[in-house]
Amino acid sequence: MTTKKDDSISAMCTVAIGEAGETGDWRSLRPVINHAKCIPSIKKKSACFLCWLYCPEGVIKAAIPVEIDLDYCKGCGVCAEECPAKAITMVREGEDDE
């Protein structure tokens, strides 16, 4: 990556993925989705997506199946808290999913 110097006299940053670095590094708990419980996966249509709606980092994709971008997920656990189907569990980093 080339490094051009920023000459601005006040702090400004561009609006881009990764602008603040890979914030997923900050995570101590990782969300793990059980698609057998996830409503969009069960119904096979766009439904629920409360995790996508509540995620404060905007790292959840409203897809079927739902995807979480772990490069930027900080592991706050809001998605797990809000999931009505209890499909998301928070697992300590370094421990097994299962």
């Binding site: 490094t3 110097k5 006040s10 702090a11 400004m12 561009t14 609006v15 602008e19």
Partner: peptide
């Protein structure tokens, strides 16, 4: 578009476009 006065980290850092901030 820009975010004005974002939180800055202790050290200089390249942004997503490779500009050293």
């Amino acid at each position: 578009p820009r975010t004005l006065n974002p939180v800055l980290f202790p050290n200089r850092r390249a942004n997503s476009a490779g500009v050293l901030c």
